[in-house]
Design a protein around this nucleic acid. Structure first.
Lengths: 159, 159
DNA sequence: TCGTGTGTTCAGAACTTACTGAACATTCGA
DNA sequence: TCGAATGTTCAGTAAGTTCTGAACACACGA
């Protein structure tokens, strides 16, 4: 281990956290780095050098970050390619992403079909769980709105 | 593939969903099966036979489910060992588990230390994200309470 | 106390996944 | 249109994870 900078170490730590959620380490490294790097926009070459990842890994990883809406490309004047930066609302997107809840709700829904009728032992619990996930799915956007209102009022920020 | 029953297939599907969150397939299979099986309490031997898992895998997997509070042991009269069943509030525990949010908040907190001062490019965004996670962490228990109140009122359920 | 039915642990095998590196594609400036 | 810089894809490999199976530990009834 050749003496990691604080920033680089931060990217590594982010990778550990994201791995825990089932995402590839390279994905977490890239996101972590983009959260704290200066300048905020980084080219593939910069990312590759900073994180010790191959061009291929950077390409694939940034593609994932883009398609999940966490990063975007920005043009670089006088440069052939583009740079990447995290979107301002990136982490809100992670949390507010309802698809995670939807998947669970659907699983409960399917469970109800399989469990074997209205008086099967698991029916009541499955109904409750289904309703719970539907509830959260519904309320999450509202919660985000409330946060934005409160936070905007407190500090007065642009998008 | 020797003709899976609907129930068994359901367990397999649950495994896929849980794998997506970074959990071992055996863990998901066990949870999925316990959600829909009849009787609701199952011994190790039953689980092993139903899911085609070794005794070892059942032991390890159920240990995980227990320690994350999703399943519990129940005594079986006239039987040497015990049975396992999912806890009634299992899935609420998954969702309401604040530790996931805390980990992210701490990551943002650490980012602020690394990003390089108050006017570094990422500072503002990191602050917002930190506050956002703190907000969710705070509100999640309240949301669960609201669900329980609404749900209890609607259907009148015991624990 | 012993025997039997259960539960646990862990080394190793089997499998899965992520990363690299090189070939290929693309884009832009001249 | 060409050349150079950048981006993408993918086969192969390295690394990591999960599952099994067998040895071991434990608890209960007789």
């Amino acid at each position: 281990m050749p003496e990691l900078s604080d920033q680089r170490r931060y990217a590594e730590d982010a990778a550990v956290v994201l791995s825990g959620l089932g995402l590839p380490p390279a994905y977490g490294k890239l996101l972590g780095w983009l959260l704290i790097c200066d300048p905020p926009g980084q080219t593939s070459a910069q990312l590759s050098a900073a994180l010790g990842l191959s061009k291929g890994s950077v390409s694939t990883g940034m593609r994932m970050l883009e398609s999940s809406g966490l990063a975007r490309r920005v043009p670089v004047p006088g440069h052939r390619g583009h740079a990447y930066e995290v979107r301002p609302d990136a982490v809100i997107r992670i949390a507010a992403d309802a698809s995670k809840f939807r998947v669970f709700r659907e699983l409960m829904e399917r469970g109800l079909k399989v469990v074997g009728g209205d008086d099967a032992p698991g029916t009541e619990r499955l109904r409750m769980m289904r309703d719970f996930y539907a509830f959260i799915e519904d309320e999450m956007p509202r919660l985000v709105e409330r946060f934005e209102a409160e936070y905007g009022a407190k500090g007065d920020h642009d998008g």
